[in-house]
Structure formats: C-alpha cells, structure tokens
Design a protein around this nucleic acid. Structure first.
Lengths: 237, 237
DNA sequence: ACCAGCAACTTGTATATATAAGTTGTATTA
DNA sequence: TAATACAACTTATATATACAAGTTGCTGGT
C-alpha cells in the first residue's frame, strides 16, 4: 500500500494556506482570482474552488461574489491552540519548544481520562513530552500520545518548533476535525514546580484533550499543563 | 431586490439536515447514495455533493469511500456548555441556579478583558450574577453582561433555570454563532472563598467569554468562576 | 462636471462526463 | 470448506463548459 500522492486541490490548499500563514497575504488582501489560480497551476475552476472551499471552512478567507477571496488571516483555531499575552501579543519569534522526552514508541499506560480501543492498545503509542516557552519563560508543558498506526518515520521527525497538527496534516494528510477536552484548575505538583519554577500553591491549568481526525477511528491525546499567570489560554468556538 | 430562491444544493442540505434532526436518520445510518439522491431530486452529482459537503462541515455526517455517508447525529457543540462529573454524570435534575444579582441595567465598567464599541457603551448593559450548584454544592459562578439593544422585557424574564442562550434564541431570535474565551487558573479571592466555601489557596478556573451572534455587531460577555475539584469543565471543539 | 450605462472583471450555481479507488457480497476455484 | 477473484456498488478526484449575478471602473452623453 504505497503512499498515494496528495490530490491537486489539497496541494493548492496547502500552498495558499502557507502563503497566508507566513504573511505573504495579509488580512484584507485579495487572493488571486480563481481564473488566475487555474492558469498558474494548470487546473480547472472546480478544482481550484475545492481548495478555496477548504480555506473558507477553516476561516482563512471569505469570498464575495464579484469581488474576490478576501484573506481573514486568522483561522477559527481548533479548540485551544493560540496564546495571547495579557500585555502584548506573542509572535512566533518569541516562542520556543524544548523536547523533554523524545518521541518513542511505548505501550499505553492510559490515555489520561479517556478510553482507548483494543486496536489502539495493540499497536502501541508514540509518546513525547514538550515544554513551550515564551521569551524563555516556561508557559506550557505538553504530553502527547499518538497511536502508532501507519505513521512511517514519525518518531524521527523534528517536532522542535512545529505543531503536531501541522506535521500530521502535511506529511500524513491527517486533519484534526474536532475533539473533546476537560479542563481543571490544579495545584502545582512536584514535576510542575520544577519545570515552571513555581511554588506548590501556584494555580495551574490542566487540559486533557482527545483529538479526532479524518482518518477513521484515528484519534490521539494530549495533556497540557499551563501557567496562566502572565499569559492566558485563548480559543475560539 | 426580490428574495432570490435558495439554490438547489442548499434546499437539499436543509432537507437532509431536517431528516437527521428529527430522527428519520439515526446515528450510524447510511444516507441514500449520491446517485440515489441525484435520481430522486433530479440533480447532478456535484450538486448533491455540495449539499453533503455542508453536512460534513457541520459534523452531521462522515463519508467513507466505498461505503456511503454515515450519519453522526449531532453537530459540534458550541464551546463549553456541559459538565461531566469525575465520578458520575450530572443530570439536569441535580443542577440548580441561584440568582445572586438580579438582572438590571447599568453602565459598562468593563467587559472583562474584552473591548466594547462606543455604540454598545452608549446603550448600557444588562447585568446579572448567578451561582450554579450541583447537588447543592456550588460549582460555578457566572457574571453576565449583555448590551441593552432592543431586548424588551429582558430584565423581567425568569432566568432561574434557563440558559441565556435559550432565552435569546426563543424570544429574540438571537443565535450564538461562536465566540472567544480566555481561560485562567487563579487563586480564590474573598468573594470566591465565600461563595464556594474554599480556602485562599484553592485553585479555581476563570473563563472570560465573548459570545458572537447572528445579529450584526451584537455580542455579549460573561465571566465564569468554576471549582473543578469534583467536576471538570468539558467541551467539544 | 456629472452620471448613466456598459464592459470586463469577479464569484455562484449547475450540468455532463470520465476515471480512480475503497467496500461488500457473491461466485468461483483450489 | 476456505481462500481467491470478480462484479457491482460506493465515494474521490478532475476536466470542460455554461450561464447567473455582484462589483468595479471606464466611457460617452448630457
């Protein structure tokens, strides 16, 4: 079962999305018209529209008849994935990631507070722990568990400054379609006190998340600890 | 400018959505195949697929190549709206609401951490505070602020055990389409300590939420304090 | 100078068609 | 009997085409 090449509309979607995310197109800009995109990429309008539809669904653009495709800039965000500082906005340049436990394959002790299927249990789990810092200050500690199902070379990929979501989407055509999360406020335990440098009484956020994808039955899990003193977790719904 | 008739794909979408919502198709059922829908409604496949695409985007169905369109049943929830106990599920019967500050009109001191427009500021704000208990235990304290814009008799409505969402939808045709939230873990301040009966070091959850609606420019705000010791906040995304 | 109207763009909707690829049940074969 | 092969379904992807309808700017007439 060879890796099937990504369809054209998906390639175009990735390209356009990338151009929006890296700032080539800014909020308010118009994308090239559908006919231009057809000509440049040698595709037909339905195919191009398919790619644009994806961008619309994810909130990257809005389309106006007679006008064009207008870049909105920020996607709706899937659950919680962006930070906003209480004082100033946080750019990508201030955000760094440290891999604390390198991705490796192990069994499933548990999936936090979620149930997993026998099938998932049988294939083992790709496990990693990462610490995220903003301006060298630890803000977020994330434990991720992914079923080891047909993800060639995953453990050797560099996840240092990339989102798991992006890696899954770009290299494996896995889109996170939704999910479920449980949120608790907790006191810092020893591990947390060490990583974040906070006292025992410090209130922390803990999120248990289950991510569902377009691949049938494929979901993965993460547990996130967050210090919301200086930065809050924000999300759109 | 007469009302333009709804396009075919939209009519089909409404029809199928209705059939799912009223239980004609249940979770797990297969919808008629694309070709069947073409024949029955006298449309072509791209048109039918357009309608099905909408259902996929809103989470009503999933499609599997070679299989069909499988009904999922329920759409994605809007942000955080349900509780699940760590031990057992919580039914409506165990949930009570106390109005701490009755709805009244006042000025906007602030909208928590959100900006408000001059227009909103000028019309004043409907303000209320409610405490929610599960089995007589205080779990959630909610402060709500709504712009006083064309909402006749709102302050005299009974909000004791109804969701504000429901009241706005049923009596004023206002649907919450989405919104934004910021989440913090905090220590209990004096007010919190009193209402929840917890010590000062107790970690609490604070959510600042901005709700956006189908009414152009109309949004409202709430701040929620939650004790997640026994019950966690859960949400789908 | 103004403005009505048209031309040339844009996206929206819809049809017709073709091929690829996954699923399932049945018939055939070892 | 059990495994294999195939036929008949399903959705996935892509092309080619046509016309409708909204937006914008130019152009010619008043």
């Amino acid at each position: 079962m060879a890796h099937r090449e990504a369809p054209q509309y998906r390639k175009l979607y990735e390209q356009l999305r990338h151009l929006i995310e890296d700032g080539t197109y800014n909020s308010g800009d118009l994308l090239p018209s559908e006919n231009e995109l057809c000509a440049v990429h040698n595709l037909t309008r339905p195919t191009v529209r398919n790619a644009l539809d994806m961008l619309v669904n994810e909130g990257f653009i809005v389309r106006k008849q007679g006008k064009g495709s207008i870049v909105k800039g920020k996607p709706k965000g899937i659950g919680i994935l962006s930070f906003s500082g209480t004082t100033s906005a946080v750019g990508q340049e201030n955000l760094t990631t440290q891999i604390i436990v390198k991705p490796h394959i192990r069994g499933w002790d548990n999936a936090f507070s979620y149930e997993i299927t026998e099938k998932q249990k049988s294939v083992g789990c790709i496990y990693l722990e990462r610490l995220r810092l903003i301006n060298q200050v630890p803000i977020l500690y994330e434990i991720t568990m992914i079923p080891n199902l047909n993800l060639p070379r995953f453990t050797s990929r560099n996840l240092e400054n990339k989102s798991i979501f992006d890696v899954l989407r770009k290299h494996y055509q896995i889109d996170v379609k939704g999910g479920e999360q449980k949120i608790h406020a907790i006191k810092a335990d020893e591990m947390i006190q060490e990583y974040f440098g906070v006292p025992e009484t410090h209130p922390m956020l803990r999120l248990d998340r289950k991510m569902e994808t377009n691949r049938d039955g494929f979901c993965f899990f993460s547990q996130i600890f967050c210090n919301t003193e200086a930065y809050s977790i924000t999300g759109r719904f």
